[in-house]
Amino acid sequence: MAFFLETLIGGLMAGMLYSLVALGFVLIFKASGVFNFAQGAMVLFAALAMARFSEWIPGWLGVANPIIANILAFIIAALIMFVVAWLIERLVLRHLVNQEGATLLMATLGIAYFLEGVGQTIFGSDIYKIDVGMPKDPVLMLESVFEGGILINKEDFYAALIAAALVAALALFFQKTGTGRALRAVADDHQAAQSIGIPLNRIWVIVWCVAGIVALVAGIIWGSKLGVQFSLATVALRALPVVILGGLTSVPGAIVGGLIIGVGEKLSEVYLGPLVGGGIEIWFAYMLALVFLLFRPQGLFGEKIIDRV
């Protein structure tokens, strides 16, 4: 029982991190109907900026305190992501208003390659580390209930908390504020949104900025776990099944989808793995996504598309 719980909690925490990356996809898709293939590249770009600035700042300013250096680096990285968002709107999206979804998808593919290239040109292509002072040591919990207690990784625990807070804040923002409503309106119909005076360009800049911040937080968390390297850009690919599972248009879907996949991966690896020789963790998410595509293509929480004939 204790072992099962430990696996379950481990899965939930890993799932929260998937949710965070998936959220980036959902935000942009909801607000602009664009499937943003560049989300992974944005995670990498933001993490690179964060890693390098936190390394450079102590030298430039002579501040030895790592907390101050990290905060400054975070602010600078966030500002850089805002500039990236603004440039994407200005140079790419603005010229593609009312275009087909496939056209916009191709445009984001281009943005992805561009960001990966430029990011590594500016910030370098080695493996860098981000150290925001996350505790690395595991703790034992519930020792009185179970013999031996449950082992929990503190770093994962804090990361999951941060992710959960961010996800909750964004969900509220979308549902409860006027700007959130305008964002949803733009997602549904560009032309109608413009005709009631929703400034399309500003909405796009806002949503890409938010997605940039989400990418930055995801980049910091994943980066401090795995190190900042090119493979971070592929983290987004692991969030793809989450989006399919939860539905592209649903913020709660991204959360629940992430948790299901996180837990599913861990439990199947531990309990089914020995039967088939292991390695389930790698393909489990994609299998689940495939099953969903066959039987419930709109995902768990997505809006069902009904076309009037």
């Binding site: 409503r181 032309q191 009631i196 248009t249």
Partner: peptide, 17 residues
């Protein structure tokens, strides 16, 4: 060209933007 996923109330609220 209404915003299909939103309620009647929310749709009309967008007009206040």
């Amino acid at each position: 060209a209404l915003f299909k996923g939103m309620s009647v109330l929310d749709n009309i609220m967008t007009g206040r933007t």
